[in-house]
Amino acid sequence: MSSVKEVLGNLGLLDYFAEKRTCKKCGAELPYPAFRNNNMVCPSCGAYQRMNAEERISLVVDKDTFIETNANMESKNIIGFPEYSAKLKKAKKDSSLKEAVVCGTGEIGGQKCALFIMDSSFMMGSMGTVVGEKITRLFEMATENNLPVVGFTTSGGARMQEGIYSLMQMAKVSGAVHRHSESGNLYIAVLTDPTTGGITASFAMQGDITIAEPKALIGFAGQRVIEQTTGEKLPKGFQRAEFMLEHGFVDIIEERKRLKYTLTRLLELHSR
């Protein structure tokens, strides 16, 4: 009889089970599958861990239906910003991604849609020209094909290493969102931890329906900047999903285990 270790080894899954993860809230150190099989929610304390694009896709998109678009688009050091080329190289290596957003089409509960999934493991999900371009193309494709867009945001904001080009991506994507909206198609924005700065000030807040994950940080100005600028103490729960719901900027706070179900119902209700 072979040991569990041998079986896993033969299946190429040894690393998967050997990899440990530490809960960012309670510090519990558990094997990766313990998190993965629990929707990346800590089995010990229930804290939501940030999901990467692959984990997010497997959470909400029907198995084997996701087809990635513009997968090979890569950023260049467009304004010759110091150290940016090296940072990009490192981000690619560390995240195994080419940029901070994955776009494509897929089905959610059998409903075909266009999807963008931001990934904070690539330079904090910041938006430069490639992120802006990929999301713009996705909305344009969705407009052309009359598809709803479901987008997952997580980002520190615009990417300063691309200067004014990054800022202008906010307007560029907004144009594509506008056309998609004018064509009568649905856009559901799902705000995940953290969604801040220029992303909040553009497509994160332009959905027909805005869903947030529990306790996700959602805001425009950074907390430290607000404290330093105003000298005021931030109220408890400031800029969290629950705070945003209370102040009228989020439609629904949905738990991960119910997210796919809720998205499916909303997509079905809007199917045309």
């Binding site: 553009s202 807040m205 425009f220 607000i226």
Partner: peptide
């Protein structure tokens, strides 16, 4: 940049203008 501006949706207000 302040607590009240965030409460009243600074990000949403800008996003709405852009679109």
């Amino acid at each position: 940049c302040g607590i009240d501006a965030e409460k009243r949706g600074q990000g949403e207000a800008i996003a709405e203008n852009l679109v």
